[in-house]
Design a protein around this nucleic acid. Structure first.
Lengths: 151, 151
DNA sequence: CCATTTTGGAGAATCATTCTCCAAGGAGAC
DNA sequence: GTCTCCTTGGAGAATGATTCTCCAAAATGG
């Protein structure tokens, strides 16, 4: 079909214009990701693509996801997945009250964000989920990393 | 000081009422977490508490964080930190437009959430951050997990 | 203080992710 | 198409975070 072709073309151009070659492994990984609405893990993508390319190694999936992230063709669902981060949750600890987070995309620092306006958010279409909490995560560069990147 | 004492008491009661004994390791870990505004990792907490309890093992920190999570005294900053999750980000892939996420706290499934009302959020006090993106994460039980938990 | 559970410490085991090294495959020039 | 050059892929080892196993020590309830 025509539409499919043009998506592949767009991807190929995006890669080439950023200096990445277009291998069939890379293309297959991207196609599998774009076709899924599951926000898959590297392992799930590996399994999916292996049906087409049985020799595909898991390390290749990781290498390609990393490469595609740097050219903006792929995103992490979450910027804080490398190690667990915790906060106290008992009243009196400061974290007892509802709050949100500022996350530095460079150094991964997290700051609390208290903003009454964000506490009244309503989810219009919860798709059958029983929503227990709505968290806002504002992602950007912290003051320290801004200063450092300006040097 | 009086205030300090009462926080410790509150923590001890919370533990006992949930069937957890109150060890000095557990208390020290909670105190270190409550005293920090850094949203520390397990490793950072371990280093902090070791100054008071040099023999404390890292495994103990993990075991206690897990135990305290189940009684609600501690929370993860992020429910998706066990493995990386990805999405395509090129126009035409559906993930190109701004969107938010519904996350199941039980099975960790992620669904896209398109809601124009959430795209206009402004951060009142960005604390010097250069905010690049504001993501809303609605956490709760997905339809499947709701059905399963009702059995 | 005694008996019963729960917990802590040490290190091995596991899981996700990254790295190393070499051979194979793409991209551009002819 | 063919020849280089450089990027990429595959295999498996290495690393880092987290969990498990096993036994001794400490907490709880009487």
């Amino acid at each position: 079909m025509k539409k499919q072709k043009s998506d592949v073309e767009r991807f190929a151009q995006h890669c080439r214009s950023h200096g990445l070659s277009v291998t069939h492994q890379r293309l297959a990984i991207f196609e599998a990701l774009a076709a899924s609405r599951e926000h898959p893990s590297a392992e799930q993508l590996h399994r999916a693509v292996q049906r087409r390319i049985p020799t595909l190694s898991l390390a290749t999936v990781y290498k390609n996801l990393e490469a595609l992230k740097t050219i903006g063709a792929v995103m992490d669902v979450n910027p804080l997945h490398e190690e667990g981060r915790y906060e106290a949750a008992l009243p009196g600890t400061g974290a007892g009250k509802p709050h949100h987070h500022l996350v530095c995309i460079s150094c991964k620092k997290v700051r609390d964000l208290y903003d009454g306006g964000l506490d009244r958010l309503r989810i219009a279409d919860a798709q059958g989920f029983d929503v227990r909490a709505v968290r806002v995560q504002a992602e950007g560069l912290c003051p320290e990393c801004r200063a450092r990147s300006r040097v």
